[in-house]
Design a binder for these strands. Structure first.
Lengths: 349, 349
DNA sequence: AGCCGGAGTGGAACCGTTGCCACTTGTCGG
DNA sequence: CCGACAAGTGGCAACGGTTCCACTCCGGCT
């Protein structure tokens, strides 16, 4: 009858076995303060012997802290967000927090469901990539407040800036990229973008526009180039006539790759005929020929900052919401027209 | 003084507000069985009104089920595992389970820590990618058993096959790939691999070897080609002398890309001089020129099967451990020597 | 010597939910 | 007409920790 009953030892078992009170054992679990050294050693050895592991559910219930951080990202297969999640996990774990990860697929509805799940699990803090601003963000903000738990937005600020956020310097980085293209003598620069409702995309468009405008040129913008056909159409539209485009700025990963494919298929020489810079580095950017010059966001720093800020809020150290921008950098490769730096020959994927 | 006290309503509050007993409210939360229709409606409306969300910690504590699945993968930035995690999450959520994801970086030590965390959180089931067999797997297996919770291994079986596993048909797929190369008249095929302690790699080597052997040829194998320099050395070693290699089979993602880079830098024509097939599809395999023929694992099916199997075990429907293999398929592109099928021109990244 | 405060310890009341048990009511077959 | 049984409902004791409180030492001050 004693078949596989998983009777895990409880704190009471440990206390009994060590001949002490439960309070003392509890103290040992939580750092051993106010416990004599010999007692501490005894209890620890008993815990090890029994293979005791505290029940987090019970701890959460009583202490009102779940030692859990909620993380909502649009997708885990996007390398950018994947790396973000990874770094967050490492830093959170260092402070004894576990990350519960949910994906929203950038749909406000799913994100609301995610928040309910987090509310049920009583997460102690929340790291969230807000969905596209086009969708009903009213409900989202309300739900975030309802949770009454520290929140840090990542990659995009919440619409009302009521919460802290950690984002890239999209505007400045786009400016820098466009100026670099202008430095190569390019004038007719096409900004090829995706969803115009995305904060990041908008900032990048603004930066590009302003950079061109301050030099006295006009900007070309084409949004919604998120599949091959529309990218092809968008680019070809500006390849006709006498004022052909002479550079493309891919406003995000996907559009950069699509632009590259289009050029390849139309045998348009890069960078001779058309220069190319992309926003966001990607796995094979250095392997393609020509290798692709990109704006590289410092994901590690973004993630580290966001996690740290959240932890600070959770400790109650910081109260006022902060908007933090992290600098990106231009990684020069071949597609912009620069000579290929040596490193790109052996860049790792 | 009433500043920001987060007094979330409890089940008792709901019961009081609805003028019913706690038991009835509890029943409503858990599906509403044995509750009259008008009472059900009343309680539901009260719950909505108060914005009640049950406290999972309390539920877990009492019911001994955390509605939580533990997931351990080597890395979340590896597209293969990322996609796996995504599909698992979707299926788990459908059954009201939340996934707690931890990464092991393929280090046995970290994986043991991960298991402790899961033990504390009393996960109801475990999906795990076992670390390389070189490391101390004894301790791992023991820890897995200690958890006394259903376990399904993914991508690689546990060494003793005591737990269920869901893996790709590495052996057969490698055979198929090598036969395809032989079909193009290739005889001197180099299998370029990574860690020889990895189950998947070993199976692929075996499949390749057997395919060649049964046709009367010899296999060339080079392991540990996980950075550019060693891949270069390994390949060049077989490009000297009169018996030059005429095909490369990249045993995993990284080695395929490295092989590609080496050939590119040495101006070796693919597929004319050397054919190339890679194990595992990757983002830009269709975009590179030549596009790369690969063995594509069916991640979705792998993940779906693994999750389903785990859920079955958790429901107690299946007890005996099962070893399941999922078929992979060969995606023909240019690098093997076949004519480029039309699709590759507009393949999405 | 008497007092005070802090370190070290244990007792016991919760935290919010579930599940066992008890109870009422209505229906139905014998 | 009565017992059995099912549906619908509520009371209450857990689950395994944490934390408040009380209590005992003991060393250092006044």
């Amino acid at each position: 009858m004693k078949i596989s009953r998983k009777n895990r030892p409880t704190l009471h078992d440990v206390a009994k076995a060590a001949g002490v009170g439960t309070t003392t054992v509890s103290r040992v679990i939580n750092g051993g303060h106010y416990v004599g050294p010999e007692m501490l050693a005894r209890i620890q050895s008993v815990m090890a012997e029994l293979g005791y592991q505290p029940n987090e559910a019970a701890r959460s219930l009583k202490s009102e802290r779940s030692r859990t951080i909620g993380l909502i990202i649009p997708s885990i297969t996007d390398p950018f967000f994947a790396r973000f999640a990874e770094v967050v996990e490492v830093h959170a774990r260092r402070e004894d927090y576990v990350v519960i990860l949910l994906t929203s697929q950038d749909r406000a509805q799913l994100e609301l469901e995610d928040l309910q799940i987090f509310e049920r699990h009583r997460v102690d803090g929340l790291l969230v990539v807000p969905p596209r601003s086009g969708s009903s963000s009213k409900a989202l903000l309300q739900s975030l407040r309802r949770l009454s738990v520290p929140v840090v937005a990542f990659d995009r600020p919440t619409t009302n800036r009521a919460f802290s956020s950690v984002v890239s310097d999209n505007y400045a980085a786009a400016q820098q990229a466009v100026r670099h293209l202008m430095g190569h003598g390019r004038r007719r620069i096409l900004c090829l973008g995706g969803d115009p409702n995305l904060y990041t995309i908008c900032e990048r468009v603004k930066g590009s526009t302003d950079a061109l405008a301050s030099a006295g040129f006009e900007v070309l913008v084409e949004m919604s180039a998120s599949d091959y056909a529309s990218a092809e159409a968008a680019i070809m539209k500006h390849m006709a006539g006498k004022h052909k485009l002479d550079a493309i700025f891919g406003l995000y990963n996907q559009s950069t790759i699509l632009a590259y494919e289009v050029m390849q298929n139309y045998k348009i020489r890069v960078p001779q005929a058309v220069s190319l810079i992309g926003f966001d580095d990607f796995a094979l950017a250095a392997t393609l020929r020509p290798s692709i010059t990109v704006v590289k966001q410092s994901i590690e720093e973004l993630a580290r900052t966001a996690t740290q800020l959240l932890l600070n809020h959770m400790k109650g150290e910081t109260h006022a919401p902060q908007q933090i921008e992290i600098a990106s950098s231009l990684v020069i490769r071949q597609s912009c027209g620069c000579k290929a730096p040596r490193e790109s020959l052996r860049a790792r994927s």
